[in-house]
């Protein structure tokens, strides 16, 4: 599966469009990580636990998008966009969407 953030697949020709595909995940982290993030609010710096959480969530959402695209018979998804939102304290939702196409 080829994934791009632009409206084409460089070096390939789009043969067929299958419409919008999307994937979303909501995840929450454990309280210990939350506690350490609370400490970071005082000293500043990267929230590694959160970075990891968002990365895992993102790849899972991408997997779901790919599965949906595959079921439509596509071999590429173009114009991929990500949207992240805070649904509940300590939980993150990642939504990813794009256009499924067949390229040759």
């Amino acid at each position: 599966m080829i994934l791009t953030t632009i409206d084409q697949v460089p070096g390939r020709q789009i043969q067929e469009h299958y419409g919008l595909v999307s994937g979303s995940t909501v995840r929450s982290k454990n309280v210990f990580r939350d506690f350490f993030a609370g400490l970071k609010d005082i000293v500043g710096g990267e929230l590694k636990g959160y970075t990891e959480l968002l990365e895992e969530t993102r790849s899972e959402a991408l997997e779901r998008l790919v599965t949906q695209a595959e079921s439509k018979g596509a071999n590429a998804v173009i114009n991929i966009r990500f949207a992240t939102s805070d649904v509940a304290p300590g939980a993150a939702e990642v939504f990813v969407y794009g256009t499924a196409v067949r390229v040759i």
Partner: peptide, 15 residues
């Protein structure tokens, strides 16, 4: 070849 690349960071401000 093409590949989707990402980079992310979560950062907190200090007190």
């Amino acid at each position: 070849d093409v590949l989707l690349v990402t980079g992310s960071v979560a950062i907190a401000s200090d007190y």
